[in-house]
């Protein structure tokens, strides 16, 4: 496609789109510094909602649980997602490949209420017949999150693997490296940036999930979105604005780090290509 200077039309489309995307977030951030209890009336600058947020043991506990689940789920999803991508890109055809790709693509669009309900019923049925899992909590949320995050990670890594020139891998193989060595010494370092962005994507998806976690959680495993949701249901609270601002800040930093990594790897590959 012809690229270059943006036309006035393009600029106005983008301005409208980005205004729509960012105005609500900006408003949220501004009102997190509001002194008043009323979320929509400005009464002066204050950090008081941040103080209140950090003195709320329920929110902090829920945040801690969510972070633990997100780190563990993202890590497992990257391992499973990488394996799934290699199966799809490098293994050729095998019996049941169609079923395999459907199980990778379907979770991307499956309504969350269906995924949540079906996993809960699985855990209950397994508990009845196998005695495991005995009770629902962090473990069941982790399993649920690994399952839907794997699909997203697989899509990210698959697209990177497809771009990859497999002659380097073939060269290593011709020189007598066993497949596992080719993978760990050649393939893995090249797709590392994709693993990183896949991990970050899975981490935010897990941290963000309300519906599926509500179905499969048990007593004592309230995640951050569940805590936020019940507090929002009680009525609007400026404390949530403070939390939102912190989440937005963390996400922005994470995205910039991921972007920086991507730019760097892009540069290094183009340098290799130019030689």
């Amino acid at each position: 496609m012809q690229t270059g200077k943006l036309s006035t039309w393009s600029k106005s489309f983008l301005s409208v789109g980005f205004f729509f995307l960012y105005a609500p977030i900006l408003i949220l951030v501004i009102f997190s510094f509001n002194k008043s209890d009323l979320v929509t009336v400005w009464a002066g600058f204050s950090f008081k909602w941040y103080g209140e947020l950090f003195r709320d043991p329920q929110m902090l506990g829920a945040a801690w649980i969510s972070l633990k689940i997100a780190v563990l789920a993202a890590s497992a999803a990257v391992v499973l997602g990488t394996m799934a991508s290699i199966v799809m890109v490098r293994m050729g055809d095998f019996k049941g490949k169609t079923a395999f790709t459907s199980m990778i693509t379907a979770p991307l669009v499956m309504p969350e209420v269906i995924t949540g309900l079906s996993l809960l019923l699985l855990f209950v049925a397994m508990g009845q017949s196998l005695g495991w899992p005995g009770e629902r909590g962090m473990l069941t949320i982790w399993i649920a999150h690994v399952t839907f995050c794997t699909a997203f990670v697989a899509v990210v890594i698959t697209s990177r693997l497809q771009e990859l020139d497999d002659s380097i891998e073939e060269a290593a193989q011709d020189l007598g490296a066993p497949p596992w060595k080719v993978f760990f010494l050649v393939t893995l370092p090249i797709i590392a940036p994709a693993l990183m962005s896949g991990w970050l994507l899975a981490f935010t998806l897990s941290l963000d999930d309300l519906v599926i976690a509500s179905f499969v959680s048990g007593p004592g495993s309230t995640t951050l979105p569940m805590a936020v949701f019940s507090s929002v249901r009680m009525g609007i609270s400026p404390q949530i604005n403070a939390l939102a601002t912190l989440v937005i800040l963390a996400a922005t930093i994470a995205v910039f780090i991921a972007w920086w990594f991507a730019q760097r790897s892009l540069k290094s590959t183009t340098v290799v290509g130019d030689d």
Partner: peptide, 20 residues
Amino acid sequence: MMVMLPSWTSFLIRIYAWVG
């Protein structure tokens, strides 16, 4: 990146923003 950034922040919080 600007298109993606909002979806990296919490879905629940972005919907909550519209309530206000």
